[in-house]
Design a protein around this nucleic acid. Structure first.
Lengths: 149, 149
DNA sequence: TCTATATAGATGCATTTGCATTTACATGTC
DNA sequence: GACATGTAAATGCAAATGCATCTATATAGA
């Protein structure tokens, strides 16, 4: 039944997935911007980097963030120019770089989190109870998992 | 509990919402592009218009599609240039336009749907059973509904 | 080793988006 | 009617994205 003709339930789930994410994401982005912060993608990148104190290779960050190669390259350009990350040559692979978080980058994350957290609470937490949030997370997890057939 | 500090379940639901939509949407877009079709937004716009044979005002389409005003304006530019819609003056409000689907636009929708449908089946239907799809749709519906506090 | 191919990453150029502003008309108030 | 304010839609310009390609290094084979 996943061959070609999706059921109505599947089509509805698809439509609402796109719409809900668009609505919630743009609301969260708007809250960040209103507080004078950079886009969410900056936070995401810094967060990933903060979890790997040794830094990450661009291609690794690319996979984590589901970004196209050239987009990641340019996001790192901006983050570097703003002083939030550094690129250093990669020992062991002269083609590559290692990206690491600077202390400014870490500080930005700390400053953004309260606003970001409040936005999530408002735009997601405000509409679902605990059980629903857990169920939603579980169902969305199924959509993410195996690459696919 | 939706004040400021979202629970872990809420944060997880948020993270997966963004990630699942990004992954699924880009997979569906890629399938459309691989088949030589224009972006999903074109289909969305044409679909909305196909439901209102009298046409829609740009600001109405803007609300339906959750697009910024200038983005809608330019999307309509492209659709019009490609011959899929027409802009005509709006009787009763000389500021406005009415956008209507052309027969070419209708034909494009018809041609796109099999590919689009198969993509939804593959990337959503393939990962959820009927019950799960219905549950997911219901939960996402809660995220969409009332504007919010 | 020399060559072919694959991978990491950047970049030029076209398209799209975002932002601010503009133009045109509508509506409410006096 | 005249004026202030509001709404519909477009647009100039800057920033971001997508696409194709390019450079540099790595790796696998002959």
């Amino acid at each position: 039944m996943s061959d070609d003709a999706p059921s109505n339930a599947v089509v509805l789930a698809w439509a609402r997935l796109v719409r809900a994410q668009t609505a919630v994401l743009s609301a969260v982005e708007a809250d960040l911007k209103a507080a004078g912060f950079p886009p969410l993608a900056w936070y995401d990148a810094l967060l990933e980097l903060s979890r790997r104190p040794k830094g990450l290779r661009p291609f690794e960050l690319e996979k984590e963030m589901l970004l196209a190669q050239y987009n990641l390259s340019r996001l790192v350009d901006r983050l570097e120019k703003a002083g939030y990350v550094t690129r250093s040559p990669c020992p062991g692979d002269a083609r590559g770089h290692v990206i690491t978080l600077t202390s400014d980058g870490k500080a930005l994350m700390k400053r953004m989190w309260p606003t970001y957290r409040a936005a999530i609470a408002r735009h997601v937490g405000g509409k679902l109870d605990e059980t629903e949030a857990a169920e939603l997370a579980a169902l969305l997890g199924k959509l993410i998992r195996p690459p696919n057939a």
